[in-house]
Amino acid sequence: MNQTLRYIAIGAIVAAVAAVAWFWQQNDGVCAAGGAPAICVPEQIILYGNVDVRQVNLGFKVSGRVDQVLVEEGDRVTQGQKLATLEKPDFADDVALAQAQSDGSAAALKQLENGARPQEIAQALALVEERQATVENARRTVQRRSELAEDGFTAHQAHEDAEAALLEAEARLRSAIETLKLVKAGPRQEEIARARAAHTADAASLSLAKRRLKDAELYAPNEGTVLTRVREPGAIVQAGEPILNLSLNSPVWVRTYVEEPQLGFITPGMTATVQTDSGGAYEGQVGFISPVAEFTPKTVETRELRTRLVYRVRVIVDGDDDGLRQGMPVTVVLVPKGAVAGAAAD
């Protein structure tokens, strides 16, 4: 009986030691006592996630017929590299038409701003002098016919006709004088403003036509790899319709999730190590921690994990060498501040 009790006591001690060892294995870290319960800082936090590489659908800003697609699927491209073009004759004709309209409105505006030429002023002045001579001749005619009518050598009707001709000549003289004043004064400011507005509109149309011509060429927004050629030469596409699908090389993100008890040990900017199942290791940093809790993603199949609330964390990887691919499962190792550094993930 005593031997049995001895075995039971030994078994209880072994179980207690194993429980303590398991506890420290799960909560390995540094504990700091305070007024509240002790705060244990884990040596490291191990998270599991997937690589999240950004992709972008590339398309033209204008509609047209595809002329060339200059890259193949799998090609590496650099920022600013030409990837595809549309047929350009229609866009070039639009530029030529807009250029002609802009040149015409510019000439009209310059004509108004410069005012009348010296020759035009001289012409108006000559007309005034001509009309003055006509008036003088009409006055002499009236005078002669008035004397002849008084002496009875001509009819009074001829005298009245001469007076009417004099009035007409004087009116034409006044018209020529006013015309000379208008020529010297130049165009009205409202006419100049209207011509300037018309030229501004034509210049904007020209700029738009040139931009549309430039938009007939598609360039890579960043370094990356061509995933898919969506359209081929000869296809008629609408503005914004995808032509190529590009996977961007930088930045590469890792999407992972952390439970609330570990949330207090993770801060934006802290260093992270991203490990792949093939043995690759990459340095990075925590870039984003979601402020909103969510249920564990459905890709986690255990019932226990599905019912837990977690927070999404984005880790930005530095210096990727193509070892990280879209959707690849990875392990993220974080060392909280105050923990004992040097532990490695199993």
Rank of each mutant, 00 (worst) to 15 (best):
R117F: 07
V135K: 01
R131E: 04
H156L: 09
E130L: 10
A158C: 06
E136V: 12
R139S: 04
E136D: 14
Q143L: 12
E136I: 05
Q119H: 03
E147S: 10
R145E: 00
E120Q: 13
G152N: 12
R140F: 03
R140M: 08
A122H: 08
R145P: 00
E129K: 05
L127V: 10
A162Q: 01
E120F: 06
D161Q: 13
T141I: 05
D161I: 04
F153C: 07
E130Q: 14
V135M: 11
Q143K: 15
A155I: 07
V135A: 07
E136Q: 11
T134F: 04
I121N: 07
D151L: 08
Q119N: 09
L125D: 03
A133C: 07
E136A: 15
E160S: 13
E129R: 08
E120V: 11
A133L: 13
I121T: 10
E130A: 11
R144G: 00
H156Q: 12
I121L: 13
E147N: 08
T154D: 13
R117H: 13
E120C: 07
L125M: 12
E150G: 05
A158S: 13
Q157L: 13
A149H: 01
Q123A: 14
D151A: 14
Q123T: 08
Q143H: 15
Q132W: 05
L127F: 05
R145C: 00
I121P: 03
A155Y: 06
H159I: 02
T141D: 10
S146K: 09
Q123L: 10
E129A: 10
T141V: 11
R140C: 03
R140W: 07
A158L: 11
E136Y: 08
E150F: 04
